[in-house]
């Protein structure tokens, strides 16, 4: 059972291990929202995975490399792409989610995802949809705050409309013929 929180160093190690083993994944849930800038606190890391046996086998390799001790039954469940696997025997709490509530498919979520400084993260709208669909008390309490965060987050992501002057200023300055 881990007794320490998920640290920035572990986040970098996780991303490196998953990249090394070519694991397809997205941060999900409150942990994903925190990476996007949601000012809150959580305990566990939620990863959204495609229902793909080869990818699941790579997950097993990667999390073992990170220090998780996996019982044979848990390995079997991960490779079978069980909807929800909660890993407790490792350096931090890690939830592997193959079928989160409220998101139609991994591929659709991946297409809408963002890369936050090297960390692949589920779109904030999908995170909210998932929490809304869960029906859990703690998730519903977060919804109002998450929606307000989304507005601020998306406002920041929206690039101002480029004017003709902006575009002209980006062009290389014409040099005089010699």
């Amino acid at each position: 059972m881990p007794t320490s929180k998920f640290t920035p160093e572990q986040a970098v190690e996780l991303a490196a291990a998953f990249s090394k083993h070519q694991v397809d994944y997205l941060f999900l849930g409150k942990s994903g929202a925190i990476l996007l800038g949601y000012p809150s606190v959580t305990q566990d890391v939620d990863l959204f995975l495609p229902t793909n046996r080869a990818n699941a086998e790579r997950v097993v390799t990667a999390v073992t490399e990170l220090g998780f001790v996996l019982e044979p039954e848990i390995v079997r469940k991960i490779i079978a792409c069980a909807d929800f696997v909660q890993l407790k025997n490792g350096p931090f709490d890690l939830d592997l989610v193959h079928a989160p509530d409220g998101i139609e498919s991994y591929d659709a979520a991946k297409a809408r995802s963002v890369l936050q400084d090297g960390f692949p993260v589920t779109n904030i709208r999908d995170i909210i949809a998932s929490k809304r669909a869960s029906g859990r008390q703690k998730d519903l309490l977060d919804l109002h705050l998450l929606e307000q965060f989304r507005v601020e987050y998306e406002r920041r992501q929206t690039r101002p409309i480029e004017t003709a002057l902006d575009k002209a200023l980006e062009r290389p300055f014409p040099t005089s013929p010699s």
């Binding site: 929180k5 986040a11 305990q43 991960i78 909807d83 407790k88 709490d93």
Partner: peptide
Amino acid sequence: PTLDRIKYGFAWVHKPVLDDGASRAFDSM
């Protein structure tokens, strides 16, 4: 920065039952 968000965004607090067992898996949500 993202790494600061992680530094201050995760905390470990013991949750009864949830944190008392070993790893667990569920076939469906």
